[in-house]
Amino acid sequence: MERAGCIEMIYPELEDRIVVTIMGACAQELYNLGDRDNFFYLQHAMGLASSIGLGLAMHLPAERVIVLDGDGSVLMNLGTFVTLARYRPRNLIHVVFDNGSLLSTGGFESQTAAGVTDLAAIARGAGIEHVATASTTIEFGEAFLAALECEDLSVIVAKVAAVGPEHYGMDLHLPENAFRFKRWIKTRKRA
């Protein structure tokens, strides 16, 4: 399955929720479906998307926070799983698209590509109770809906093909993204 298809499938569920995505293909594919003020595209600082998600989820218990992560990014911050497990924010869904590749930087194989490293097992071993894996778009959609329903910290590891969009580019400056994201959250808190 392809990541773009997975994101497209869950896009309706992202429209009104706080979303943090990693850089590169993942960010571009979300943006191409329709940019929104409640999306934060972390275009650098690999590994920190889930940490941002944790900070958001712990301080906004009334909101649902969705993190769209990747194997290359999460491998740079495996400690995030133990911190997520320890604080267990009930309102956080951490999706890890595992394409076994550092796609955006030339497609070099990541450590998960050899089939030895199991990110879902790492998440479980860290102490996260709800960890699902998906290898078809239908499985992914079901896992995501189950995560929304269970109202607990959930990790979904989705095995996807190492393909990305043909063109990259956003009409959005990085600080502008941060400012409008913060403003969207502030407006929600007032409502």
Binding site: G55, N77, T83
Partner: peptide
């Protein structure tokens, strides 16, 4: 007070950014 103990300090940069977006002084 909310205390988030991290495994490595770089995580805290992300967590602090999340707290900032959430409007919680951190």
């Amino acid at each position: 007070m909310t205390l988030v103990q991290v495994a490595k300090e770089e995580e805290a940069i992300g967590i602090a950014a999340g707290a900032y977006f959430a409007g919680t002084p951190h």
